[in-house]
């Protein structure tokens, strides 16, 4: 991160000096505190109390760490953690990989590429819940248009029930994400590719590097900071996957697509166990918080190099 200039022409006392930025920040910070810190604190307190909404309307007695113990002995929780991990890895790898391919293919000045670039933003704008419905419709094993296309191209696909098979159901879920994100990531990366001067690549080519070597030796290192951010962004959205789970698979088959967010939703909203759902939420917050911190530290190191 390049340093931004401190823009205070007249000198003043440190307190007075800092009060100005804090005043600017206050409204936004207040909104963020109100809408994220408040619920987190509230959920923390609830996580130590027994509270099932179908038993009592108000929160019940304090039960200490009992609900946290339950989280760590709950197989379905670990299942959803694993599902979320798999989903995140699959969708990040596919989105970024495909996004990179698209960016490299479109990184030229033909009219067709320009048109395609203009349209790349579209899938991201489609509501995730709707993406779920539309892919579910198109992959219906009897009548879906994608299913028919795939069946005619790939003979083995004929017997695949896309949303019925645990592996494919997760892939379809990932695909709904990839459809929205790969083009967007391509757009982000195209911005980065533009800033790589043609001379560099020309130099590499003249040096005898083939296209593959050119990519790995020149393009990739220059894109790396941008790629790190893109991976981070995609991961943030992926670990929170919820909408498409509801509209595409409902968590099935079995529990093969129950994500962490879906699991917490079931405990809180379907089973009305507010206390347990709060404990689950906090475990998720802590785990993701640690992961996010690690990643941010790694990113900062990368930049420092």
């Amino acid at each position: 991160m390049a340093a931004t200039t401190v823009q205070r022409p007249r000198s003043r006392s440190p307190l007075r000096k800092h009060s100005v930025p804090y005043l600017h920040l206050a409204p936004a910070l207040l909104a963020v505190v109100l809408t994220t810190v408040y619920p987190l604190v509230s959920a923390l307190i609830t996580s130590f109390r027994h509270w099932r909404l179908n038993e009592t309307r108000e929160a019940g007695e304090f039960v200490g760490l009992a609900q946290y113990q339950r989280v760590f002995t709950d197989d379905t929780f670990f299942n959803s953690a694993l599902v979320t991990l798999n989903f995140t890895v699959i969708s990040v790898v596919l989105s970024v990989g495909l996004g990179l391919c698209i960016a490299l293919i479109l990184n030229n000045r033909t009219r067709l590429s320009a048109l395609t670039k203009a349209l790349l933003i579209l899938p991201f704008a489609v509501a995730p819940a709707l993406k779920g419905f539309s892919w579910r419709f198109m992959l219906n094993p009897d009548t879906g248009v994608y299913d028919k296309m795939l069946d005619s191209v790939l003979p083995f696909a004929d017997n695949i029930n896309w949303l019925g098979d645990p592996f494919w159901a997760l892939m379809v879920l990932a695909l709904t994400e990839v459809w929205g994100w790969a083009p967007l990531i391509a757009l982000m990366l195209l911005g980065g590719l533009n800033s790589i001067s043609p001379e560099v690549r020309e130099a590499a080519r003249i040096d005898g590097a083939n296209a593959w070597q050119q990519f790995w030796r020149v393009t990739f290192p220059l894109l790396r900071p941008l790629l790190l951010i893109v991976v981070f962004l995609k991961a943030v959205f992926s670990v929170k996957i919820f909408d498409q789970v509801v509209t595409t698979t409902g968590g099935g088959p079995g529990r093969a697509t129950e994500s962490l967010n879906f699991f917490a939703y079931s405990q809180g909203f379907t089973f009305l166990d507010i206390g347990y759902a709060s404990a689950v939420s906090w475990v998720i917050v802590l785990v993701l918080g640690v992961l996010a911190a690690l990643y941010l530290i790694a990113m900062a190191r990368q930049e420092a190099k």
Binding site: V20, L23, H24, A26, P27, L30, L34
Partner: peptide
């Protein structure tokens, strides 16, 4: 600068009022 602080202050005051309402106003359960 006085005017700035004033406006921002007002904004902040309004938001804290909302906050106070949200945290304190829990007495109207049916």
């Amino acid at each position: 600068m006085r005017r700035t602080s004033g406006t921002i202050g007002k904004l902040a005051a309004a938001l804290s009022a909302v906050l106070a309402l949200l945290i304190g106003g829990c007495a109207s359960a049916p």
